[in-house]
Computed example of a mutant assay.
Amino acid sequence: MSRLNVYADNNPGTPIIHLTDPARIASELAPIGVRFERWNSPVTPDRPAPEAEVLAAYRPYLDQLMGETGAGSADVLRVGPETQGWAEARRKYLSEHTHGEDEVRFFVHGQGDFILHVNGRVYDVRCTAGDLISVPAGTPHWFDGGETPDFVTLRIFTNPDGWIARYTGSDIAASFPAEA
Rank of each mutant, 00 (worst) to 15 (best):
F36Q: 06
L116K: 01
M66H: 06
R59G: 04
L65N: 11
D161I: 03
L132Q: 01
D171N: 13
W163D: 14
R78A: 11
P140H: 07
P81Y: 02
A178F: 03
P81M: 03
S27A: 15
D46R: 05
P140G: 09
T83S: 13
F176L: 02
T14L: 14
T14G: 05
I156L: 15
V152A: 07
K92P: 04
P140T: 08
W163M: 13
S73L: 04
T20Q: 13
A174S: 11
G120N: 01
A8G: 05
P15R: 09
A89T: 15
L77N: 12
T98N: 05
G169Y: 06
S170P: 04
G100Y: 00
D46K: 03
D75F: 07
H109Y: 05
T14C: 10
Y7T: 12
H18V: 15
L94A: 12
N40Y: 07
T44P: 04
R90I: 10
D124A: 13
F143W: 05
L55I: 12
I25V: 13
A174N: 07
N119F: 01
G100D: 08
W142M: 04
V54L: 07
P45R: 04
R59N: 11
P42E: 14
D102E: 04
P50S: 02
A30G: 05
A89P: 02
P50A: 12
Q64P: 00
A56F: 06
R35A: 03
D21I: 14
G70V: 04
I115A: 05
T148V: 12
V76F: 08
V118D: 03
F107R: 00
L65M: 10
R121K: 15
P45D: 08
G162Q: 11
V76I: 11
W39M: 06
P50Y: 00
I133S: 09
L94Y: 03
S175Q: 11
D102V: 02
W142E: 01
G130D: 01
P140D: 08
R166K: 10
G33A: 05
F157I: 05
R38I: 14
Q64K: 07
R121S: 11
F114D: 06
L154Y: 13
L29M: 01
Y167C: 09
P136M: 01
P12C: 09
G80L: 01
R78Y: 04
I172F: 13
T128L: 01
E82Y: 00
E28W: 08
F106K: 06
H18N: 12
A129V: 11
R3E: 14
V34F: 08
I156S: 09
I16P: 03
I32E: 00
E101D: 08
F36A: 10
T139K: 01
D131I: 03
D63V: 13
P177I: 10
I115K: 02
V54D: 04
A8D: 15
S175N: 10
H141E: 04
G67D: 07
P12Y: 07
E37Y: 08
R126A: 09
G120I: 09
G138V: 00
I16D: 11
D161A: 13
C127Q: 07
T14N: 14
V104Q: 09
H117C: 06
E82L: 02
F176S: 01
A30Q: 14
R47L: 02
E28L: 03
V118K: 05
D113K: 00
Y93P: 07
E53S: 08
A49E: 11
Q84K: 15
L4F: 07
H18G: 13
I32K: 05
E101Y: 02
G162L: 09
